[in-house]
Design a protein around this nucleic acid. Structure first.
Length: 220
DNA sequence: ATGACGATTTACT
DNA sequence: GTAAATCGTCATA
């Protein structure tokens, strides 16, 4: 099993900035097992990151920063490592990334799924109405990039947030007992980027093998 | 000013 | 499996 126990703990050590100052493929892999924490009105909402994708910047046809496109929306991708890039899409959804690499290099990691650990009731409230017939199941709370933002109360107001030193949205090291080995990760293609041609075929998505909170499981 | 589109989710056939 | 929802963003003019 990829972990010794369910992550239900409270506050833990923050991730260091240097943790994020690496290329996107590396950060995507090392973020799995870490925790994303949202604090609203003094209450913690959190979850263990179980699925990520790397976006490689200027050369990556699937990235918002492809070709060096720098606009009001993508500005956060050019910020220093550890910054949040949150964008709005399809007229109704938000997705969040962790900026990495060097400042000015528009590379980032998309957070695609969490295993919820704290604040499940509030997450259910935020996600209610989307799941038909009463409360959504736990596996429907954060099993997608827009779902996790909705569950955690993350929107565009939080783009450019510092995930290292911030107090409303930040990253923590894996909870005690959580150990993710390379063999616990499945490496596969990214989701929803078919139009990116050859870049859509690159293995730039990773998830925790067997975890029920993952958004899309790769074909066997 | 206008039109096409989207790193998605949900409901429905 | 397919289609709708829904609007900010961006390229073009």
């Amino acid at each position: 099993m990829p972990r010794a126990g369910r992550d239900e703990g409270g506050p833990g050590p923050r991730l260091a900035r240097t943790f994020c100052e690496v290329d996107a493929s590396k950060l995507a892999r090392r973020l799995i097992g870490c925790r994303l924490v949202r604090v609203r009105e003094g209450r913690r909402l959190s979850g263990m990151i179980v699925e990520t994708e790397a976006y490689l910047g200027v050369e990556d046809a699937a990235a918002h920063s492809f070709g060096g496109r720098r606009t009001a929306r993508t500005e956060a991708m050019f910020a220093r490592a550890g910054t949040a890039y949150v964008y709005f899409t399809y007229g109704m959804h938000h997705c969040m990334n962790v900026v990495c690499g060097r400042e000015g290099e528009p590379v980032a990691v998309l957070l695609r799924a969490l295993e919820p650990s704290e604040g499940l009731e509030e997450m259910r409230g935020r996600r209610a109405g989307r799941a038909r017939g009463g409360a959504p199941r736990d596996v429907d709370l954060c099993s997608g990039p827009a779902k996790l933002c909705q569950a955690m109360g993350i929107d565009r107001a939080l783009t450019m947030t510092d995930l290292i030193d911030g107090d409303a949205l930040f990253l923590e090291a894996p909870a005690p007992g959580v150990v993710v080995r390379p063999s616990d990760l499945v490496e596969t293609t990214r989701i929803g980027v078919d139009r990116a041609g050859e870049w859509a075929k690159r293995p730039l998505r990773w998830y925790l093998r067997g975890n029920p909170h993952v958004s899309v499981v790769a074909p066997a």
